[in-house]
Design a binder for these strands. Sequence first.
DNA 1: CAGAAATTTGACCAGTTGGAAAAAATGTTA
DNA 2: TAACATTTTTTCCAACTGGTCAAATTTCTG
Lengths: 216, 216
Amino acid sequence: MTVPANPRAKAPRPKTRIQREKQDVILDAALNVFSLHGFRGATIDQIAEAAGMSKPNLLYYFGSKGEIHRQLLTSMLDLWLDPLRELDSDGDPMPEIRSYIRRKLEMARDFPRESRLFANEMLQGAPHAIDVLEGELKQLVGDKAQVLESWMQQGKIARTDPYHLIFSIWATTQHYADFDVQVRAVLGKDRGGEGRFEDAARYLEHLFMDGLLPRG
Amino acid sequence: MTVPANPRAKAPRPKTRIQREKQDVILDAALNVFSLHGFRGATIDQIAEAAGMSKPNLLYYFGSKGEIHRQLLTSMLDLWLDPLRELDSDGDPMPEIRSYIRRKLEMARDFPRESRLFANEMLQGAPHAIDVLEGELKQLVGDKAQVLESWMQQGKIARTDPYHLIFSIWATTQHYADFDVQVRAVLGKDRGGEGRFEDAARYLEHLFMDGLLPRG
DNA sequence: CAGAAATTTGACCAGTTGGAAAAAATGTTA
DNA sequence: TAACATTTTTTCCAACTGGTCAAATTTCTG
């Protein structure tokens, strides 16, 4: 019984150059399609065409549509949580929060497709990511909420709900990726250009910082 | 040549009782399915089953899948803009903004499916709603942004970017509908119950009001 | 370069999809 | 209740879907 040619078979034969290259191309193409149409709305043919190859050829590298989606989703979830992980309990509270917001907004600017992939998954009830949400994510947010709370107790930031604070940072920053069409349409030609992210950064800093300055 | 039975045919024969009832049932079922799977991900069979009828029977009331979606989207867009329309330039600035936020949050709570339908449309680049975005919506937001700006000039609210202020209200409130799974997962059993909307209301009021109090 | 391994292609398949057509059943009204 | 209009069901179809398979081609390695 010879080892099957399919690179995803058991015996983990080292990947060839072509395998690495093509898999990257496929994942990139799939990210385009999935982020735009969601899992069910995306077709293998679409992804294959975007990747510049035939459908059977694509399926030579990834055994199924679900497999591509899974890989995309897990690597994205990891990337997505990085900014929050970096929130440092030993740092200065206000600058820490400020740069968390900045990092999240940069993610929305630099990885809009990943943001939309995530949003699609959420809209569908997170069928593939619910375990991560209830496990890793819940844990991480719980930890950081405690950090925020300790800052509040020390009077370093205003007293507020740490969970909803995190939600509102997520919501406001990801909005610029997920609802990009709307943002552009409303701002129009004049203000909808690349400068919109800097405007958003300025605005959000103002919004959160003034709301969080310790009072009294 | 007799008038065709199909209720969508030209000669606008008055709708029967059954037509009104069934169309409502279909639209409700379609809202469930479209909001969960997006346009491409939804199937007529799914909608028909959710509506408790056969596919050809459903197609007797709506000529095509796209027709249902169009109708759903237009009536939703109208509902969706209502709260902003009500923002009254003659009212007291702070209470006006406060109740705008409250109304938007109530919409997220009471019409989560509509919110998700809208979000799906945005994620896909608004293929069916782009005209509304660039027309009615842009106009409306432009008007209200001017109202906000006049309030700023009168020193009634803090100086900030009125467009991004509106965006951030949209983002934070709709988040509780669109990312509901995530919100629940993170808050857990104890805090993820029905009370989460009141918590959110309190938090958002705090966030925006303190950020908007006139300084000086 | 020869042979082996890896890659690509074309033909194919069974299940699903949106939708059409006509017959059958049901409802409405004179 | 008979005639008519409306509604529902049954049957069907062509296009599309995710995926398989063997053959042909290309790339790698000794």
